[in-house]
Design a protein around this nucleic acid. Sequence first.
DNA 1: TCTCGGATGTGACGTATATCACAGCCCTTC
DNA 2: GAAGGGCTGTGATATACGTCACATCCGAGA
Lengths: 238, 238
Amino acid sequence: MNAPYGMELREDCVDCTMTKSGYFCKLSDAAVAALDRIKFTSSYPSGAVLFVEGQSPRGVFMVCKGRVKLTMASAEGKTVLVRICDAGEMLGLHSTISDEPYEMTAETLEPCQINFVRGHDFLKLLRDFPEAYAMAAQQLTTLYRGACHQIRYLGLSQNATEKLARFLMESAHRGEDTGQGIRVNLRLTHEEIAQVIGVSRETVTRSLSELRSKMVISTKGPHVLIRNKSALEAMVAA
Amino acid sequence: MNAPYGMELREDCVDCTMTKSGYFCKLSDAAVAALDRIKFTSSYPSGAVLFVEGQSPRGVFMVCKGRVKLTMASAEGKTVLVRICDAGEMLGLHSTISDEPYEMTAETLEPCQINFVRGHDFLKLLRDFPEAYAMAAQQLTTLYRGACHQIRYLGLSQNATEKLARFLMESAHRGEDTGQGIRVNLRLTHEEIAQVIGVSRETVTRSLSELRSKMVISTKGPHVLIRNKSALEAMVAA
DNA sequence: TCTCGGATGTGACGTATATCACAGCCCTTC
DNA sequence: GAAGGGCTGTGATATACGTCACATCCGAGA
């Protein structure tokens, strides 16, 4: 078992002690054993590109550890950040199922351990284990919900501050409630937030300042403390 | 067999002579027969609301005939038109699978015949017939692709004309090639196009005029003739 | 044929935000 | 501890587009 990029490599899914909360981790023992036989485990450094928008699908990637970002780019260099996939999620599912090119580019944000399963092996797994189909369907709906939220950011907001407010509300689900409000680590730079909500980096900085001066939030690096959640909600609803 | 709203009602899927190209129509005889037993067929007038954003899911709707639009709305009255579902498509699939509220509102655009299947009946169908799972997965990926294209409209375009150009390119797939170019019936008003690409109605009208004056397209009501496809492509790529 | 309502076309105007430009800050790496 | 490179913060400016306002057109019914 080699360990490049400073991480321990977990080779077998059966005895895996990592997340266990992932879609593909929760399958029955028989299905996990079958998955073990067809997967290839490898680790990637930060910034590695798993696949590129427009490529023909080779298979699915299962994130065991680390985070991967999915982006779409235009020819002019504009970029939309569509999703940050955490450990437990699968990438390339849509393209593998429909056998159409990848819609997005996948790039690791941190050192990652990732299982790869070739397309036809994966489709066979689905056929052999209906529970695997159920799991895949869950992942598909999760991704769809994410896309819907993004359409909300981009299409239903009156102005940049409302977009940001929607984003913060969304992120708040991952946060913890302290005495003075909800504390979240956004884990994204202003530039990346800008690519999620579809505004310029400067506008994100300015809108954050605005919320800070209104005492709605306070910030420390990528950590945000939501002091006045109802004020945020009001900006989205109003 | 009654026939309200001026359409013939086709009660049984087994002998159905309608589209037959839909996801749920192409199942095996056994699966279609099972579907026949759990479905409720009804017809709706134009403008009928099948379900509303935020409602708890009751089940899935299968469009046998007619068109249904899916929209998301903000509290301020802004609306995004996310998808036009043609005959053969299913609605409410995500919510039924994940048992979370409907993300969108579904409203008929024309008189429609629609099969309804209750949530748990549908989930049982999926469990009993793996091919039905495959069919559902196909529909899920189709919807996801649509959402991705919408994110492209909203997020990756420099200006309104580029958004419209993307929309026209997309629509062109449904069009027929005549001698002078591709002829498409958009089947949407300027207002509705505006809700798809995220600009105001007036801007759609103006951008269409611009493309007309540049001899890229010509229009007659909802019919558009794309005279210069490469010019359109250039506006999207440039 | 006439009327009416919705769809389309077009002008004037204000503004939110992109863009450019640069300064200060913090974290990493040596 | 110094140097360097991202990240963040902020001002000035230009412009594309939303909004309002109205004119015109077209098709469906009476």
